[in-house]
């Protein structure tokens, strides 16, 4: 028998999709240049308004949704592969490694296209994350809290190398563009690479069961006939590519890949097939809220989304750390 039992769409998913769509409308509607979304929908808008919509507002909101979804799913995959709740692109050296890669390109091949930068950043991110997993594997520290500490230190080392060269060659400002995510420069024609992140998020969903099995550890995975090494490599490629693409196009968003999957894990557990849709929607919603807040607090100025995400994210991160501490050792 190969029949699959009929599964109803989980009501939670449907409800959260509606919330994300509403947030998208809010995100499109607000900004320094006032637009009437209703006029646009009714076709009464002036030509200039439609232009602002098509070249700036919609790409921006789309970029936020794509980055939010993919970064969050990335974090989920990393947490399964590292078998640790505190692994994420920002706490495992992936983001610093990717920005080091972009900096290398900026120094050596100044005229490189975004695509070329992305490829090099992916390779750096891949090596950086693999190095982190190897450090974990051979590190004598068994406490789950050691993982983010090691990762942040490792990231700090990579970051200081980047800062050193950026300082020497007067590229500090460009460096901050990659390390601090910002969607205000997103325009039509400058964000389309993000669809690659979206595609890889779908790949992660298709391979979800493999990541669940890998998350049980190498012995369980081998017992169940899974090629553990191959799945780890697949996961690393997905994580490194998504991170590199996102960092190249909009810069890093701190803590997003850490806290959203953790909250999802607490609520529904780590069955990756079930968790991926929630993580994706939750990541998009989190980032949309950060963006809307960033644009409303000091109107008409904008607080960078990475600053807002950092403040909210670090607070949630602290709560998660404190929760973990009593059963940490």
């Amino acid at each position: 028998m190969t029949l699959r039992p009929v599964k109803s769409i989980e009501p939670g998913i449907a409800a959260s999709v509606v919330v994300v769509i509403l947030l998208c409308f809010v995100s499109i509607a607000i900004g320094a240049y006032s637009l009437s979304v209703i006029d646009l929908v009714r076709g009464d808008a002036e030509f200039h308004d439609s232009m602002v919509m098509a070249t700036s507002r919609i790409p921006r909101t789309l970029a936020i949704v794509l980055v939010g979804m993919s970064t969050s799913v990335c974090g989920l995959i990393m947490q399964m592969l590292a078998r640790n709740k505190f692994a994420s692109p920002t706490t495992a050296g992936t983001v610093p490694a990717a920005s080091l890669g972009i900096l290398t390109m900026a120094l050596l091949v100044p005229g490189a296209t975004m695509f070329m930068k992305m490829i090099v950043a992916t390779l750096f991110a891949l090596v950086g994350t693999a190095a982190f997993l190897l450090i974990l594997r051979y590190s004598p520290m068994r406490s789950p809290l050691a993982v983010p500490l090691v990762g942040l230190m490792f990231g700090g080392v990579l970051g200081s190398i980047a800062t050193f060269f950026a300082y020497r060659y007067d590229l500090l400002q460009s460096l901050s563009a990659w390390t601090e995510g910002d969607f205000s420069r997103v325009l039509k024609g400058r964000y389309e690479l993000l669809w690659l992140s979206a595609a890889l998020t779908v790949v992660a969903y298709l391979a979800a069961d493999r990541f669940t099995v890998a998350g049980l550890g190498e012995s369980f995975a081998t017992n169940l006939g899974l090629n553990y090494r191959r799945v780890t490599v697949l996961g690393l490629v997905i994580v490194a590519t998504i991170t590199a693409v996102n960092v190249v196009t909009v810069g890093a968003i701190p803590f997003l890949g850490l806290i959203v999957p953790n909250v999802i894990s607490l609520a529904i557990g780590d069955n990756v097939r079930r968790a991926v849709p929630y993580a994706a929607i939750g990541g998009a919603a989190f980032l949309l809220v950060c963006d809307i807040a960033g644009r409303l607090i000091r109107q008409p100025f904008e607080i960078p989304i990475s600053a807002i995400a950092g403040v909210i994210g670090s607070m949630v991160f602290l709560v998660l750390l404190i929760r973990e501490a009593p059963r940490g050792s």
């Binding site: 028998m1 699959r4 399964m80 069961d209 669940t212 049980l216 012995s219 899974l226 557990g269 097939r273």
Partner: peptide
């Protein structure tokens, strides 16, 4: 067999079927 993944008992037991159906539960 220290497992950090937060799976339900049912999810875990069902993973025993992974070699046969790769998570596409029949």
């Amino acid at each position: 067999n220290h497992v950090t993944a937060r799976l339900s008992v049912e999810d875990l037991v069902l993973l025993g079927r992974y070699p046969y159906t790769h998570g596409r539960t029949t």
